[in-house]
Computed example of a mutant assay.
Amino acid sequence: MHTVTLIPGDGIGPEITEAAVQVVEAAGAPIQWDRQLAGMSAVDRHDTPLPDATLDSFRRNRAALKAPLTTPVGGGYRSVNVTLRQEFDLYANVRPALSFEGTQTRYGNVNLVTVRENTEGLYAGIEHYIKAEGKTIAAESIAVVTRSGCERIIEHAFRYARQTGRKKVTAVHKANILKCTSGLFLEIGREVAQKYPEIEFEDRIVDACAMQMAMHPDQFDVIVTTNLFGDILSDLAAGLVGGLGLVAGANIGREAAMFEPVHGSAPDIAGKNIANPTAMIIATVMMLDHLGEQAAARRIEQAVREVIREGKHVTADLKPGSICSTPEMAEAIAEKVRLAG
Rank of each mutant, 00 (worst) to 15 (best):
Gln212Ala: 13
Pro327Lys: 05
Asp231Tyr: 07
Ile252Val: 12
Ala340Ile: 11
Asn176Met: 04
Pro96Tyr: 02
Ala26Pro: 09
Asp34Gly: 14
Gln36Phe: 13
His313Cys: 07
Ile7Glu: 01
Leu84Glu: 00
Glu310Leu: 10
Ala275Glu: 04
Phe185Leu: 09
Arg309His: 13
Ala279Glu: 15
Ile274Pro: 08
Pro51Trp: 12
Glu133Val: 10
Gly292Pro: 11
Leu65Asp: 05
Asn176Cys: 05
Tyr91Gln: 06
Leu240Val: 02
Val304Arg: 04
Pro49Trp: 01
Gly321Val: 03
Val206Pro: 04
Ser148Met: 05
Asn118Leu: 01
Asp52Glu: 15
Met280Arg: 07
Lys319Ser: 02
Glu120Lys: 04
Ile323Ser: 09
Tyr107His: 15
Ala238Glu: 01
Pro217Cys: 06
Gly311Phe: 01
Val224Thr: 07
Phe185Ala: 03
Arg190Lys: 07
Asp317Ile: 06
Ile232Pro: 03
Leu288Arg: 14
Arg162Met: 06
Gln22Ala: 15
Met280Ser: 12
Asp52Ala: 14
Ala157Asn: 09
Phe158Arg: 03
Met1Lys: 15
Gly253His: 01
Arg338Trp: 02
Val304Thr: 07
Ala330Asp: 01
Ala210Ser: 14
Thr71Ser: 08
Arg95Pro: 09
Leu228Thr: 10
Tyr196Pro: 06
Tyr160Gln: 12
Gly321Asp: 11
Gln219Gly: 10
Pro14Glu: 06
Ala303Tyr: 00
Lys168Gln: 04
Thr103Arg: 03
Ala214Cys: 11
Ile300Trp: 11
Glu155Cys: 00
Val192His: 09
Ala266Thr: 05
Gly183Arg: 01
Ser322Ile: 04
Pro277Glu: 12
Ala332Cys: 03
Thr315Ala: 02
Ser182Pro: 07
Val304Phe: 00
Gly28Tyr: 07
Gly11Met: 08
Ala297Cys: 15
Val144Tyr: 02
Thr5Ser: 14
Val73Asn: 13
Ser325Val: 12
Thr48Cys: 11
Lys168Ser: 01
Ser41Asp: 13
Gln294Lys: 14
Val80Asp: 00
Ile281Tyr: 14
Ser325Gln: 10
Thr17Ala: 03
Gly13Tyr: 04
Phe158Glu: 03
Leu98Gln: 13
Pro8Ile: 02
Val314Lys: 00
Asn176Val: 01
Asn81Thr: 06
Ala270Asp: 09
Gly264Pro: 09
Ala64Gly: 14
Glu310Asn: 09
Glu87Asn: 06
Thr226Gly: 12
